[in-house]
Design a protein around this nucleic acid. Structure first.
Length: 479
RNA sequence: GGCGCGGUACCCAAGUGGUCCAAGGGGGAGGUCUGCAAAACCUCUAUUCGUGGGUUCAAAUCCCACCCGCGCCUCCA
């Protein structure tokens, strides 16, 4: 096992990863704002976070991950009443959908899912602490963070604020803040808006305070890893640092990892351009969760990922290839031998796989190791040179791959059906399919290939692909 | 304007000084296998890494200049 390295936004460099407490990783990941269905761009980041936690876990770390669910923000406060719902009921729907989506994409459940509105008290306490320590001030009904008190501000985003004076860029008269850079910790109650009555006054939390409050509550003053999309570097994460470190006097996060954005056809997703996709949109078009997950995971996380339907198709083909391989390893009758000529080769593939992921989660490199082995073993099997004794090691390697990538299980349809998201077309039951296959087998035995091909064609049109194996059995799968 | 990411074959993409006259996947062409397919395998598909200079015995990899795409600096994964 080599050394783990991550690109740390804070230092701008790749650094060896060593958690504060040996064997334990405290990780905070910015989750969704539940004002709508999450889109595939969101899931790019969530898949990255999942790959990260899975790899840490595989490396033997005990991972404690907290993910927040932001269920109070301007859009929610605005949209909920418009939908005739309280903000709780309104966001419940999208939380439920998000959890379903997580399940479909095989995203592991973080140890703690923290809903913002369940932590108002924690946020209020944090704001009160910042007031006590002089890092915050009241202005009209709101409370602001005083950037001037925190000289390190800008360390994460490398934004240089020295040239910006209050009023230099912003018309001060329109603001009740002392400094244009100051940001809201607590927003005043406005008539008709949802609010909380608290000891720091009536109102609602600012955007950044929830993450500080919940991270500190569940993970303590110093986290090992904090992740999110690149767009959160400034101001969100910068502000989290300011809030948290001002309150605790301790370093807040040791490694900041940021995922690059997903684009669609070279453009940023946006509703106005109409290139905005949720998972449900893709499922409705017949795409599989495993293909989506593979696509999102296969491009290293710090690289902008250009989503196209062609790319999604390519990902589906890649997953197929891997599944076919595992299937073949399990079912093919391999020559018996006590020799394991491939043992060293399989070990090497494992090392390459590992080395790829160790290098800042270079999933593309890790995948190359997997596919290389797949080809070599397929070739050996074709030539009858792959011994049964080697199969367990090969399967174990693929299992290790799947602990991270989680695309091999082949339960796409079952999951979609369970979630009520399977494509609408009427599906044949397994029994019906088996019956047609038996019928075709008889036709083939009497060498009536026309009839046999007709059945194969009919099944193909209904999304069932047949493969005649050498031993006379027929393998089928849904496409 | 400031900060940052990227431009590698038809598509996705690794590689950041020699082991690269450039991984891996997808697609395409031809072939093996098959009754035919499918799957799998084999061969081919970048004398070249945005462009132009430079450094070096040696560059996709370092330096300089330029061109192009994108992000953040306001809400955003």
């Amino acid at each position: 096992m080599g050394e783990l390295q991550f690109q740390n936004t804070l230092s701008g460099r790749k650094e060896p990863f060593v958690p504060l407490h040996a064997g334990e990783v405290k990780m905070y990941t910015c989750g969704p704002t539940v004002y709508d269905f999450a889109h595939i761009g969101n899931f790019r980041t969530f898949v990255f976070q999942d790959v990260l936690r899975r790899f840490l876990h595989q490396r033997g770390f005990h991972v404690r991950q907290v993910m927040n669910l932001t269920d109070v923000d301007d859009r929610i406060i605005q949209n909920a009443p418009a939908a005739g719902l309280g903000i709780r009921e309104y966001t419940d729907r999208y939380i439920k959908a998000f959890l379903e989506d997580m399940n479909l994409l095989n995203l592991e459940m973080p140890e703690t899912l923290a809903r913002a509105t369940d932590h108002i008290e924690d946020m209020v306490n944090l704001v009160a602490t910042l007031l006590d320590r002089g890092y915050a001030y009241r202005s009209d009904g709101s409370i602001y963070y005083r950037i001037a008190r925190f000289p390190q501000y800008g360390q994460l985003s490398k934004v240089n604020f020295s040239g910006i004076q209050a009023g230099a860029r912003v018309d001060v008269d329109r603001y009740e803040k002392d400094d244009a850079r100051d940001f809201a910790l607590w927003k005043e109650h406005k008539p008709g808006e949802h609010f909380w009555e608290t000891r720091i006054g009536p109102g609602r939390p600012g955007w950044h305070i929830e993450c500080s409050a919940m991270a500190l509550k569940y993970l303590g003053p110093t986290l090992d890893i904090h992740t999110g999309g690149v767009d959160l570097v400034f101001p969100h994460h910068e502000n989290e640092i300011a809030q948290s470190e001002a309150a605790t006097g301790e370093p807040f996060v040791r490694y900041w990892l940021h995922a690059e954005h997903l684009f669609v056809n070279g453009e940023k997703m946006s509703k106005s351009v109409g290139n905005f996709y949720t998972l449900r949109d893709l499922f409705a078009r017949g795409h599989r969760p495993s293909a989506i997950r593979f696509l999102l995971a296969s491009v290293p996380y710090r690289r902008q990922l250009n989503f196209t339907f062609d790319g999604l198709q390519q990902a589906a083909s890649s997953v197929e290839r891997l599944r076919n391989f595992v299937d073949r390893l399990k079912k093919e009758h391999l020559p018996e031998s006590t020799n394991t000529p491939f043992a060293a080769r399989i070990e090497e593939a494992g090392r390459r796989f590992e080395a790829g992921l160790e290098d800042d989660l270079n999933t593309a490199q890790a995948l190359a190791a997997v596919f290389d082995l797949v080809r070599e073993v397929n070739t050996a099997m074709d030539h009858g040179e792959f011994a049964a004794a080697d199969a367990p090691a090969a399967l174990a390697f693929l299992a290790r791959f799947d602990e991270i990538f989680a695309v091999l299980s082949g339960d796409d349809f079952e999951k979609l059906r369970a979630a009520g998201l399977a494509p609408a077309e009427a599906e044949l039951t397994d029994e019906e399919i088996e019956a047609r296959i038996a019928e075709r087998k008889q036709a083939r035995q009497r060498r009536d290939f026309q009839a046999a091909d007709r059945i194969r064609q009919e099944l193909a049109e209904r999304g069932i692909l047949l493969e005649d194996l050498k031993d006379g059995t027929v393998r089928w799968k849904r496409t």
